[in-house]
């Protein structure tokens, strides 16, 4: 769309990197079981995690190798997070949170490779993750606490007159959780990658107009570098935030009393 405005030959396709394409033939049709680039990068994430956590820990060394200590570091990091935020009785959900965290982390980081596809930039992916968390939390809450789980919405510390109003707000915020949970991740990934692509579109200006390009091209490359640094930070922080919010919701489900 923007390409229409820039007649000089600059092409802006910041969203092309998110296209889901079949890897083999299929005439562009994407069926349910079609192997697409999304499938490839999901598989690469799983493969990378398997490599780190199975091949890396094969030695079971008491004094760990470098790769094994990375795996142990990730394990300890998430273990501590679950224990600190959600409490000791949430540790049976540790594999679940660990899976989510590693999947998002590796998808984010692999998506930063040039020409890569980022599964976590897609609402379809993050919505599944967030709805899974939402359903888990709701089911665990009702199974563990029965009807007492509804006390989560009845703020006992507030004055009685305010409680119905607060209850409405609490219910709304409870159901908005999966929305914000998923949009946050997908939006962050989309935004960062799109911004990098927009800056990247400015880089070849020097080929079109030398005088303008001398100023614009280095600036855009600098901007790409800076954004890339920020995106590396964001890739980690979003995985961390997704996992920690899962822990917070789990804490609500296990201990609904405010």
């Amino acid at each position: 769309m923007a390409a229409e405005e820039h007649g000089e030959g600059l092409t802006f396709h910041p969203m092309d990197q998110f296209l889901v394409r079949p890897l083999f033939g299929h005439d562009g049709e994407v069926g349910v079981f079609t192997i697409t680039n999304a499938t490839l990068w999901l598989a690469l994430s799983v493969l990378a995690i398997a490599l780190l956590f199975i091949a890396g820990t094969r030695g079971r060394a008491i004094v760990p190798t470098r790769i094994q200590s990375v795996a142990e570091l990730a394990y300890g990091f998430v273990h501590k997070m679950v224990e600190d935020v959600a409490g000791k009785d949430a540790l049976k959900f540790f594999p679940y949170v660990f899976t989510l965290f590693l999947f998002i982390l590796f998808s984010n980081f692999l998506g930063l490779l040039p020409m890569a596809f980022t599964p976590t930039a897609h609402i379809a992916v993050t919505a599944v993750l967030a709805i899974a968390v939402f359903l888990t939390v709701t089911i665990v809450g009702f199974v563990k606490n029965g009807a007492h789980f509804l006390e989560l919405f009845w703020v006992k510390s507030a004055p009685l007159a305010l409680r119905p109003v607060l209850a409405v707000i609490e219910v709304i915020s409870y159901f908005v959780r999966p929305v914000s949970h998923s949009i946050r991740l997908a939006g962050n990934m989309t935004a960062g990658h799109a911004v990098i692509k927009v800056f990247a579109a400015f880089a070849p200006v020097i080929l079109i107009s030398g005088a303008v390009g001398v100023a614009v091209t280095p600036l855009s490359i600098l901007a790409i570098t800076a954004m890339y640094g920020l995106e590396i930070l964001v890739a980690f922080i979003q995985a961390y935030v997704f996992a920690i919010l899962t822990c917070v919701y789990l804490k609500d489900a296990l201990h609904p009393a405010h």
Binding site: M1, I183, R184, V248
Partner: peptide, 26 residues
């Protein structure tokens, strides 16, 4: 941890406005 949770909530609203912009554009 609380810092990052707070940041995530504050940032989510900015992402919503970004999303609105994207929707309008595309």
């Amino acid at each position: 941890a609380t810092l990052f949770i707070g940041m995530a909530f504050a940032e989510a609203l900015g992402i919503f406005s970004f999303l609105v912009a994207l929707l309008l554009m595309f």
